[in-house]
Amino acid sequence: MSGHHVSRKVYVAVGLALLALFVLTVGIAYIDLGPFNIVVAMTIATLKALLVVLYFMHVRYSSRVTWVFVSASFFWLVILLVLTLSDYFTRGV
C-alpha cells in the first residue's frame, strides 16, 4: 500500500553495516587519538543514526512532508545544542 517497500536484502545489509560500524567504534575507542576520539565516536554514531532513519524508518522513501518533519526535529535539536553550548563555551572560565 505505501509507495515503496524496502527489500529484505536492504534491511539485512543495513543491519550488517550497523554492526560493522559498532565494532569499528569500539575498536577505535581503544586507540588513543586524543581529542579526536570523541569526534570519531560521534561521527560513527551519527552515521548509524542516519542509516536507521533512512532505511529502517523508511525516510529515504517517504514523502516530502515527512522529510520536513524529520528535518525540523533535527533543526530544533541543533538550535538547542548550538545556543546552549555557544553560551557555555564562550564564558572563558
Binding site: V6, Y11, V12, L18, L19, F56
Partner: peptide
C-alpha cells in the same frame, strides 16, 4: 541493533 533489524523485517 539486532532488535531494530527484527522490527524492520
Amino acid at each position: 541493533l539486532l532488535s531494530s533489524l527484527t522490527v524492520a523485517l
